[in-house]
Amino acid sequence: MTPSKRAEADLPGGASAQADTAAWVEALYRGMLLIRRFEERVYRLFLEGEIPGTLHQYHGQEAVAVGVCDVLRPDDWITSTHRPHGHALAKGVSARAAMAELYGKRTGCCAGKGGSMHLGDPSVGMLPAIAIVGGGNTVVTGLGLAMKLRKSDQVAACFFGEGATNEGAFHEGLNFAAVERLPIVLVCENNLYGASTPYHRVSLVPDVAERAKAYGVPARIVDGMDVLAVRAATAEAVASARTGAGPTLIECKTYRFTGHSRSDACDYRTDDEEAEWAARDPLLVHGARLEQEAIEQLEAGVRAELDDAVEFARSSPLPEPHEALDGVYA
């Protein structure tokens, strides 16, 4: 079960709707839990040598992917980054297809050609993730432009880190989206560090939201550790985009609970800072809204889903070497 794809309306009121709401609150938790447990397994499998390549993991930022994608429809699109596992699962790439891709198997969502940094699947509205920092920020304008020219009411959401806002692409994309009133939501995951570099060392403006103002784009700052806060801001932004009012930037204050990539010991961060953010773990924040029993059931369900995903990935065939030559041109 994926998080319910309800429209961007407010929470339903009334008595019968309350059960509905409880199920939805659980679904949001499950979405985040799936990402967390997926990442934990992937890390272990990587250390055990089963998963090749490199990894940029998403632990800690789950509320952003899940809060945003809960608002989006299957026919809305997202762009993602070098850290795409959470975005992919939240947008509807199955745990099987994501895991198999990390294993380099033919059954992976990119047939083994993309790998960790390029997870994605057009059938669920996710461009293969772009591992060039800021790369999504211009491409998303094209997604938005096509939606606008075709008069569809789709929207495109662009995930990027605060580090990406120092790329020219961020500024060009933002300004173009603004003047064309494109149906875009810019989701900045401000986790304070771009690789080892703290944002305050590379920007005199502490809030990314401030930068949006320079382009006439409305911006919100939200608690990126609270899935409901992310969701509420996204709902507004998406509603506005669908009616042709143009882009919104949402800055989610968040934190990555792991290293930048697999081999990073995070010596550039303090233990105190890490502990402070760990106390705001999105699973704790949102977990407080659920019964313990419900959480245990969700854990069991997620465990089974991931057991199945790993089994699927392990038993899937490797691509044949000659397949490397296929698919360069349409």
Binding site: G112, L318, P319, A324
Partner: peptide, 16 residues
């Protein structure tokens, strides 16, 4: 290297 972008899967990378 064969005229393709670098694929992620080790078996494919090795092949090109």
């Amino acid at each position: 290297t064969r005229d393709v972008p670098a694929p992620a899967a080790p078996v494919l990378e090795q092949a090109i």
